[in-house]
C-alpha cells in the first residue's frame, strides 16, 4: 500500500498543474472578455465572398 504515497503525490501534482494553469489564464486576461470569443469562433474566413463580377457591373450601371 505504499503506492498510496506515490498516487497522492501524482494527484497533488496534477491538481496543482491545473490550479496554476487557471491562475495563469486569469492573469493573462483570458476571462476579461468571455463573450466575444463565443461569437468569433463561428466566423469562417472562407465565407467572405469575392465581389462577383456580375454585381459590380450592375453597380456601375446604377450609379
Amino acid at each position: 500500500m505504499n503506492i498510496i504515497y506515490l498516487l497522492l503525490a501524482i494527484s497533488l501534482v496534477v491538481a496543482l498543474i491545473f490550479f496554476v494553469a487557471f491562475i495563469f489564464s486569469v492573469r493573462k486576461g483570458q476571462y476579461d472578455d468571455v463573450y466575444t470569443p463565443s461569437v468569433r469562433m463561428l466566423f469562417e474566413d472562407e465565407i467572405i465572398k469575392n465581389p462577383n463580377t456580375n454585381q459590380s457591373v450592375k453597380k456601375e450601371k446604377s450609379s
Partner: peptide
C-alpha cells in the same frame, strides 16, 4: 437605390460601397 438595395442616406450607401468593394459584404 443602389445595387438593387435601398438606402436611407448617402452615408449608408457609402459604407455599403466600401464594404462591398473590400470583399466584406458578408
Amino acid at each position: 437605390r443602389f445595387s438593387e438595395k435601398d438606402f436611407c442616406c448617402t452615408g449608408c450607401k457609402t459604407v455599403f460601397e466600401i464594404l462591398n468593394t473590400n470583399d466584406l459584404s458578408y
